[in-house]
């Protein structure tokens, strides 16, 4: 199973699309590793610089409809090769969300209120998140504050995460 705990990157916008996550011109790459420097290259957010801000992060917290647009699995791969295996948001585009779990990664949905609260408390601080898959619990910490939020994950998605992805799962089931 992949690692889901570590430093958090906050992306404060809805509808961040796959072209912003990994621009089409890099789709000619045929190894996942080569996508590493280009993650979020075209994302324009106040004060955000992709190379500087992605470094060392493990978790992304964002808003609604994350990963809309193209079906390119290059989007989750670009996160994966940067060590980011968990994305938390209000909602996800269908294909992106499926691609995450298919790769044994996680896309977790929280309520608008919870996401709002996390942005308010943590967005400006160095934040660390621990995902406990046994207790379905996220523990989010920054200096002097700690929040606990439970999350839900379907049985099937959990099976994909535990199997390490859909290829391994499908191969043993069908």
């Amino acid at each position: 199973m992949k690692n889901f705990s570590g430093k958090v990157l906050f992306l404060d916008r809805s509808d961040i699309n796959t072209d912003e996550i990994i621009p089409a011109k890099y789709l000619t790459e045929i190894t996942k590793e080569s996508l590493k420097p280009y993650l979020l290259e075209d994302l324009k957010l106040d004060g955000f610089e992709s190379l500087r801000d992605v470094e060392g992060k493990t978790v992304v917290i964002t808003r609604a409809n994350f990963g809309c647009g193209s079906s390119r699995e290059h989007a989750p791969w670009a996160f994966e090769v940067n060590g980011i295996n968990l994305i938390i948001g209000e909602s996800f585009a269908r294909i992106f969300r499926q691609n995450m779990f298919n790769c044994g990664m996680m896309a977790i949905e929280l309520s608008v209120r919870d996401i709002d609260r996390l942005f308010k408390i943590f967005a400006d601080r160095e934040t660390f998140l621990e995902a406990d898959l046994e207790k379905n619990l996220l523990v989010i910490k920054a200096e002097g504050v700690e929040e606990k939020i439970s999350f839900s994950i379907s049985e099937f998605d959990r099976a994909l995460v535990e199997a390490g992805g859909w290829v391994a799962y499908a191969d043993s089931h069908y």
Partner: peptide, 9 residues
Amino acid sequence: GVGTTDLEV
């Protein structure tokens, strides 16, 4: 439309 892993399976 699906991603590459769905396509692979």
